[in-house]
Write a protein that binds this DNA or RNA. Structure first.
Lengths: 142, 142
DNA sequence: GTGAATGCAAAGAGTTTGCAAGGTT
DNA sequence: AACCTTGCAAACTCTTTGCATTCAC
């Protein structure tokens, strides 16, 4: 534990600063799209061979409880995916062939939520949007 | 098998007309939002106590293969949900408290897909959108 | 030192599969 | 009759949990 120490962040959220939490937090920080628990576990293994799979899940659930991480369901095969809870609103464009995910900057439906709030009388708290397609590489292979 | 016989539909898709398929197809027809495999199984049990859970999954997968049904992932707890593959494009507004789902008629992002296609060079095939909030009943209990 | 976090193994969900028996065309 | 579908039980995958040990504060 040296250069990449997230102690201050963990303090702010009231959780202890452990080696395993640092590893996972750093993996999520580096990721540019949501990761499966398995991807995170494999990343951990490279840095600490003794890391256990249940620790990965437990830490992710702790992070979720503290709102540091969000679970974005969404694959066809019922695997959860995890990413840092960025303040900015993000959506992904997902390749249905190779599963590559790229970030969509602008959110097209914030305005829409307002009108929906009026018509449905729901108190709207958020939304999930994913767009699917073939990425430039895969569409040429079709 | 009498009044509610989907033989013609099954013929059209090239699959046999069985009692179990009729039961499941009718349950999906009546549903106004996606159902979990368990909900479907429980519905089946009421009409045919001998129905097996694996039959439910197998029939659902057959229907998916024939594009009669779509699997819409999406719950926080990694359960799949299933609904008929309606031609019209549908989205749901989901209550985060009681899980009630209501259908959103208009899709706000069809235009958006076109612009995204240009900027990303993806060949876009579809999208998934769910909006979350508290329904009128639940928001008063908060 | 005290309570919280970890590793391991085992248990739980949800879903799929092998096989023998039964149903559909 | 030939093939497809079903029921049952067992297997498989993803995730959670119990318990003893280790670690952070």
């Amino acid at each position: 534990m040296k250069e990449t120490d997230n102690r201050e962040i963990f303090n702010r959220y009231g959780i202890k600063n452990t080696r395993q939490r640092n590893i996972i937090f750093n993996i999520l920080k580096k990721a540019d799209s949501p990761l499966t628990a398995e991807q995170i576990f494999l990343g951990c293994k490279k840095l600490d061979d003794s890391m256990s799979f249940s620790t990965v899940y437990r830490i992710l659930n702790t992070f979720i409880l503290k709102d540091m991480v969000v679970k974005t369901s969404i694959t066809e095969d019922n695997k959860s995916m995890f990413e840092l809870n960025y303040e900015e609103h993000k959506h992904y464009l997902v390749c249905v062939s190779c599963s590559k995910m790229i970030t969509i900057g602008h959110c097209p439906i914030e305005d829409y939520e307002n009108s929906l709030q009026k018509t449905t009388n729901f108190d709207i708290t958020g939304h999930k949007l994913e767009v699917y397609g073939y990425c430039p590489q895969c569409k040429n292979k079709k």
